[in-house]
């Protein structure tokens, strides 16, 4: 069981490294935000697995919970900040819906 959890942790780290590509190369700032958010949500699970590997679940679960909240607030703050179009080379036009339902 220990080996299985270790393998799961390593697989998660591989996925995080792949998501890092999106976080590093964009192309736009919001794409980077998507990548960073994906890494953060995997980190929460990774922290709990690490807690099991070190047999300190009680402590690492608290850290995971705090990290989940921190990640959420970081994403909210960053996306609020980019409301002001900083660093976004986007077209200046209104995005309108193509399909309307009543």
């Amino acid at each position: 069981m220990h080996g299985f959890l270790l393998g799961a942790a390593l697989f998660l780290i591989l996925l995080m490294a792949l998501s890092l590509y999106r976080a590093a190369y964009g192309p736009t700032v919001v794409d980077r935000l998507v990548g960073a958010n994906a890494i953060g949500s995997k980190t929460v699970v990774l922290l709990i697995i690490i807690g099991h590997l070190f047999s300190r679940e009680d402590m690492f679960v608290d850290i995971a919970l705090a990290y989940a909240m921190l990640n959420f607030i970081a994403v909210l703050a960053a996306s609020r900040y980019f409301h002001k179009r900083k660093g976004l080379d986007a077209v200046e036009e209104e995005i309108t819906p193509r399909i309307h339902w009543d």
Binding site: A68, V75, I95
Partner: peptide
């Protein structure tokens, strides 16, 4: 939190005028 964070990111993209 996850759908709310998704909504915040998509809102930033729409306000910046990124074309889908």
């Amino acid at each position: 939190a996850s759908p709310t964070a998704t909504h915040a990111i998509v809102d930033a993209g729409v306000r910046a005028g990124l074309r889908p």
